[in-house]
Design a protein around this nucleic acid. Structure first.
Lengths: 136, 136
DNA sequence: CCCTCATGGTTACCATGATAACTATATGGT
DNA sequence: ACCATATAGTTATCATGGTAACCATGAGGG
């Protein structure tokens, strides 16, 4: 498909364009598979990654909403919404920050921690398989 | 970040997992850049790709809704919605299929064709640059 | 002190993906 | 010919990303 177009543009190398499209396809396949996997565990990519960044935080066991947004590079409203879901599912606890009344401390509940442990192996297995398997 | 986790799983190679995460990151960057580019031209990824598959169809100058959905691998409702937008923007024409009253023929308008010509060079340039540039 | 401005979070709304359920038309077995 | 079933598209609804606008609170200059 690309060749017919790329022929017409001097400064473009059809091979490289195909590489880029290949990256897009591979990623899209990977994302779809991850999403299906998470859905089976009542999670989503963002819910899972949220648990991860809290868990991985050195020295602290809680993060602020904006910390999570920064680390995951998503907008704060999306984090707010995701946290509401996670709290309702009992995977995190949200408490008030004592030194700044605007801020919240987000921490993992026991259930959140065990969910993470349960889901991680499959997550890594999928990532692993995608690079090892039929990808370019 | 990955290392701390991957250490704990025997059958997982942290390097490969990092490769997979790198693909995800690269793709996500590419997608974001493409989306911004399309937005500047009053398009979206899907609107653009829809124009492309109609344009590239050999022997015919129109496609059915379900053909487009198949070629782009998106659901038919999304195609319906996208086509409504493209028609309102005057980039495509939708006519009834004479031999099957359920089906529609989607074809590019002159405006659609010229939009495609205008947008393609930048599109390929972005794909090209992403593979050539700082990607892994 | 208090008024302005910055910051943390949330709400409201838009775009874009999906699936389920619906309408209209075609097709095929009896 | 007619009824059951399949197919083409659309509508309705949900999930998940975004931005803009909005509170509440904190911080700093006059």
């Amino acid at each position: 498909m690309v060749d017919g177009y790329a022929d017409r543009f001097d400064d473009v190398d059809a091979g490289k364009v195909l590489d880029a499209l290949q990256i897009l396809r591979t990623a899209s396949r990977l994302i779809r598979e991850l999403e299906a996997y998470f859905a089976r565990h009542d999670l989503s990519q963002l819910r899972f990654l949220t648990l991860i960044v809290i868990d991985r935080e050195p020295d602290r066991d809680s993060l602020a909403v904006s910390d999570i947004a920064d680390r995951l590079d998503v907008s704060r409203p999306v984090v707010t919404r995701t946290l509401q879901g996670l709290e309702k599912a009992g995977l995190i606890r949200i408490s008030h920050n004592e030194s700044d009344a605007r801020s919240r401390n987000i921490s993992l509940s026991d259930s959140g921690k065990s969910t993470l442990e349960r889901v991680l192996p499959g997550y890594f297995a999928i990532l692993h398989r995608h690079v090892t398997g039929a990808d370019g």
